[in-house]
Design a protein around this nucleic acid. Sequence first.
DNA 1: CTATATAGACAGTTTACTTGTCTATATAGA
DNA 2: TCTATATAGACAAGTAAACTGTCTATATAG
Lengths: 147, 147
Amino acid sequence: MTNDNWEGAIAVLRLASQLVDGIQEGLARRGFNDVRPAHGFAFARISEGDATTGDVAEHLGITKQAAGQLVKYLVAHSYVIRQLDERDARARLLLLTERGRACISAAEAAAEETVDGWKSQLGPQAFTHLQMALLMITTPGRLRPSW
Amino acid sequence: MTNDNWEGAIAVLRLASQLVDGIQEGLARRGFNDVRPAHGFAFARISEGDATTGDVAEHLGITKQAAGQLVKYLVAHSYVIRQLDERDARARLLLLTERGRACISAAEAAAEETVDGWKSQLGPQAFTHLQMALLMITTPGRLRPSW
DNA sequence: CTATATAGACAGTTTACTTGTCTATATAGA
DNA sequence: TCTATATAGACAAGTAAACTGTCTATATAG
């Protein structure tokens, strides 16, 4: 049983690696070859709205300075623009450009391709179970479904 | 459906992140606070036996030079020893020390703790399904079980 | 109105990689 | 056997993304 758990643990890492590589490859195939995985998490926070560089730092678990460099890169590559915050003259609000939104869509499409691969390997029923199990583990608020 | 897949994809990343952090934290709690996640993959290859620095490089997907630095670190921290290869005077075979083997055991125990957390959240049946789904996706040779 | 906290930029350092080059050894072909 | 090419791995220098430390400008609380 111990060893089975270890195998399962390794499998989670392999799966995540497959996904990251799949998204990266799918993004490149769609013309976005200047974004790294970390940028995806920054996009996720920025797309929520009302994001400052500090917010991005907190969301990624890195320092403000590192987030500053990251945001600078995204601005330089036209994924994000900075905008003065009317309520706080120190802050610069971050907004996605059209290109930024297109990149998110591309990432979602690329992820879907990879996940579809899993679905066809598992069959629809087992895939649904997998999906629910993943959501149950990682979503603290939700309880076990009725089945 | 698209959005569900995206959520599921994110969940896989969160799960992997939970696992890596759990192993890291569990290792530190057991006194191994000088190993990084990448070292685990090196340990995995070295424990298979007959490993050279080049083998480690290939297994980790990094250059020989980078693997050389990594192995040097593991030797300096008494996890690994180098040994002359009788069959090839260029090569140095890598062997785990007692401490190296203890570190692997500690990592397995730490992984088990994390995975047990998932098990108790899911219940035994759903957990077994999750485990089988993960193994089916990441193990190309195996086909669907009988259930 | 003064003291302290926050947003984020600038400078320098660390670390985990990279490419390029080098020596020693192995192996395949004339 | 000799020579050409490939491989194991060390050394040196460069790069990218993080880090700590410090600074200015602005906000906010007493």
